[in-house]
Design a protein around this nucleic acid. Sequence first.
DNA 1: TTTTATTTTCAATAAATTTTGAAAATAAAG
DNA 2: CTTTATTTTCAAAATTTATTGAAAATAAAA
Lengths: 164, 164
Amino acid sequence: MNYHEGKHKFIQAWGTLGSSWGINKVMAQIHALLLISPKSLTTDDIMEELKISRGNANMNIHALMDWGIVEKELIVGERKDHYRAGKDIWELARQVSRERRKREIEPILKVLGKVQSVTGKSDEVKEFKTVTSDLKDFSSKIDGALDKFTRSDKNWFFKMLLKL
Amino acid sequence: MNYHEGKHKFIQAWGTLGSSWGINKVMAQIHALLLISPKSLTTDDIMEELKISRGNANMNIHALMDWGIVEKELIVGERKDHYRAGKDIWELARQVSRERRKREIEPILKVLGKVQSVTGKSDEVKEFKTVTSDLKDFSSKIDGALDKFTRSDKNWFFKMLLKL
DNA sequence: TTTTATTTTCAATAAATTTTGAAAATAAAG
DNA sequence: CTTTATTTTCAAAATTTATTGAAAATAAAA
């Protein structure tokens, strides 16, 4: 397979995967592009590679920076901003976990905590409290494990995965 | 908090969470509704509770059955089909993992395998092969861990989570 | 300061996804 | 077999989400 084809396949696949996990396709594609690029890229590079508008490129680059998985790199003597993605996959997974935990797990835990205060003793209320409580317990455990993971040492994590 | 309000909050929150994980909002809401319901529900029950059309209800109920997290329950003497969701959260997580692994991780692993055959020795190609290879290694490890998880015993899993 | 390059914003537009509702298909009852 | 209830399908409509492109803002150079 030639490079051009492989690159295209990878960027497409990464975009599709992103979509099915609630991440905007172009955002995932820009990330894929930066991941495999040996040098940092400008907005114009990204626009051209992915055939997207300036506004779209700019917004998604910023979303990636908000997620903490892409950063600006200032190149001396160059006017344009350059962007690059970290190449360490474990670091990437850690950062994504950190963000999703903050953005999604914590809010749902908050709701599950609140609805525990529902009053009544009908079957419906009993079932509601049991299920939401179980859900809260489970989510808390996952939350704790993710917290541990995002703070853990790379080697420890890989050893643990293997031992699993 | 009264039951009605709690129920509403929970269903809304579950729908929102679903959305940010690539799951259709109504699908997640139907699941939430069945989760907290002490008895199985008909399509009409679901339509009324969530104020959605018959077609919408039917399609999403079927999607939930395809995911293996909702099942039909035949009630003797009743014409209408009844549906129920399993109440065991661990079982739910296991089933969701199983499905996402099959639907999403396996396809990306396949692509990552294929693009490894890219030829050339430029910096770009080198970077491409390194990153996609790292990504494949990492994904395989996660895939393996998920496989283990979906086959494991509940108690073993909880003990492991705690030990973590 | 003025000019030029670059980035950011955002209203308008386009695209993708979801939802509806009614017709067709299926299944149970009479 | 005929009637009635229920489920399924799917084209059209509605809604949501993503994208464009150009104007405004910002930043660097002259």
